[in-house]
Structures are given as C-alpha cells and as structure tokens.
Design a protein around this nucleic acid. Sequence first.
DNA 1: CCGCATCCTTTTAGATACTG
DNA 2: CAGTATCTAAAAGGATGCGG
Lengths: 130, 130
Amino acid sequence: MASDMFEFCSNMTEEQDARARALIERAAAKWPLRILHVLSDAGAPLRFSRLLERVEGISQKVLTQTLRTLENDGLVIRTLYPQVPPRVEYELTPLGRDLLMQVAALWRWIVERLENFDARKAVKLTAAAV
Amino acid sequence: MASDMFEFCSNMTEEQDARARALIERAAAKWPLRILHVLSDAGAPLRFSRLLERVEGISQKVLTQTLRTLENDGLVIRTLYPQVPPRVEYELTPLGRDLLMQVAALWRWIVERLENFDARKAVKLTAAAV
DNA sequence: CCGCATCCTTTTAGATACTG
DNA sequence: CAGTATCTAAAAGGATGCGG
C-alpha cells in the first residue's frame, strides 16, 4: 500500500472528492494559472481589458469563461461599476492568493528539478540500479 | 507587484517556462494524477491490465497515451517482459513518487479548505469588509 | 496480453461580428 | 468597455477491429 500519502482523502464523499479533483486540476491549468498569476503580480484590481492585454494569447471568450469559473470557485472577485461605458474590475480573494501560493510552491519545486523530468534520466537510473 | 512569489521563474528561457507549465498542468490533470495515485497505492509494479481495472473509467487508448507521456516525463518506468503473451509492467520512478508527494500536499491543502471554495463565501467576506 | 490504427462523437478553443 | 452569439477549427475521448 505504500505509506499513506493520501490518507486525507479516505473520509470523503464522492462529491467532495470530485470537487477537490476539479479544483486541483483547474488551479494548475493553463489559463486559470496565468490569470491568477497576472492578478497577483498586479497587486491591485484589474479591468477586463487589462487582463486581456496581460494574459498573453488568451481570447476574449476564454478570458470571460475562465473568470466566471474562478469567481464561482471563490478565487477572484468581480466588481461592476455601473457606468457608461461599463467598468468591471477583477481581483484575487484571500483564498485565491493562498491557493496561488500553494501552487507556486509546487511550480517552484518542478522548476528546480526541470532537468530531471526526462525519460532518459529514468532509464539511466534504472540501468545503474540493476 | 506583490511580494514576489514567482521570483523563481524570472531567469527562465521561454522553452523552460513552457516545459514547467506543461509539467504542472499534466501532474494535476485527471488521468495522470489518478494513474500516479494507483501506482503509488499499489507500491509495486502493475501490469497494463491491472491499471486498466484500477483506474476507474479510463479507456485503453487514453491509458496507453497517458502512460507514454508519464514515461517521457520520467515519472514512470515501463518494463517489457518478452513473453508470449507479452507482459508489461509499470512502476513509479523516484521522481514520480516525489512529484506525487508534492501534488498530494497541494491536494490536501485544498481538501482541508474545501468548503471555502465557493463564490458565496467570497461575497460574504467582501460585504463584511465594506 | 498489450496496444496501435481507424473511425466517430464530444469538448474546447479561436475568430469574428454584434449589443447594452 | 465588457461582454454575448455564432461559426469553425482543433483537440480529447470512446468504440471497435487487428497484429505482434
């Protein structure tokens, strides 16, 4: 069984498990992570159009979709200022900042070992062990 | 600018950055994470057909594809025993185990705060702050 | 037994045009 | 400005049959 690295998820309902898996998957996915990163770097609320500029390569549609999901997950706050033309600002919630810190730790761990992630390394180690 | 949570990725080439992003995304993705989890739980090499049974809901095609990617990333080792019928076993590499531990830490962090990931919580906090 | 090749369906994303 | 609507392209996934 290996020492139980996943003991923490033994007392969960299927629904909770699915929710946690969805959250971890989304937090590490391309667009959500870039958006959270940009909002964190900005350190202040950003308008929709600023995000569209700074999140390189994202389309308007995908930006909208992803922001909705991040909002539903409680990671960003959307504030509408009812003006003409309208102004909408997005900012990280405390939870969003905390989650990003956790993901950043994993990211950093990977970056520090980047050269090890290569099939050839694994083959060499196996050969050496035999 | 916010205190620099991402200082570690400032001295990277675009290629390295892309590689790191791909790795973090894959490590947290549905099928790779389930496969790594099953291999970790097993604590021993598993045959292809055992994986197909234990990774609930995966198709043969996707299992093959995902295992190839995990192999290329140096996270699992594939061992072919040239018998008739053939026998193929998969096991975690040390790097695969270590990466899974890092992801498990993030996963656990999320599970422990599962109830906070909800837009209503964020709204309440905002309202309270105003 | 393992897994590739093919075909088909579903999902996801990009481009463009349009509205309050 | 901040979206929505529509269409198309691309990617992911399932089903099935074949081959070493």
